[in-house]
């Protein structure tokens, strides 16, 4: 019985840490001055949401979010910033 309780507390502990980290990362995403840092924080936020999906027993959603949300969306952001970076370099 005590083992069971311990495992339960462990889960709740992880859940709490994940929740706090989610909020912190979201704030970082929106307060970073540099756009590329913001994008990377969004990517880690998305990765952390994958963890929370696993905790919430949603493996399908976790895989989809990992591949599409965290992987693809980040690359699209990075490509846009890269394009702009090159344009700026061409001008100067």
């Amino acid at each position: 019985m005590s083992e069971f309780l311990a495992s339960l507390e462990f889960i709740n502990y992880i859940e709490m840490v994940v929740s706090v980290l989610l909020v912190v990362l979201a704030i970082f995403t929106l307060t970073m001055k540099s756009l590329i840092k913001s994008v990377l924080f969004l990517s880690s936020l998305s990765m952390l949401s994958v963890v929370s999906f696993v905790l919430l027993k949603a493996p399908d959603v976790a895989i989809t979010e990992a591949v599409i949300g965290s992987g693809l969306v980040t690359t699209l952001f990075v490509f846009t910033l890269l394009y702009v970076h090159q344009k700026e370099r061409d001008v100067s």
Binding site: P59, D60, A62, I63, T64, A66, V67, I68, G71, L72, T75
Partner: peptide
């Protein structure tokens, strides 16, 4: 693999298709 085993294992055709696209990325 993910696409073909969508009926029995987690995943499904959306992440599978996205995985194929990522490999080309």
């Amino acid at each position: 693999y993910i696409v073909l085993h969508a009926k029995t294992s987690p995943g499904g055709s959306f992440p599978g298709g996205a995985m194929i696209a990522s490999s080309i990325l």
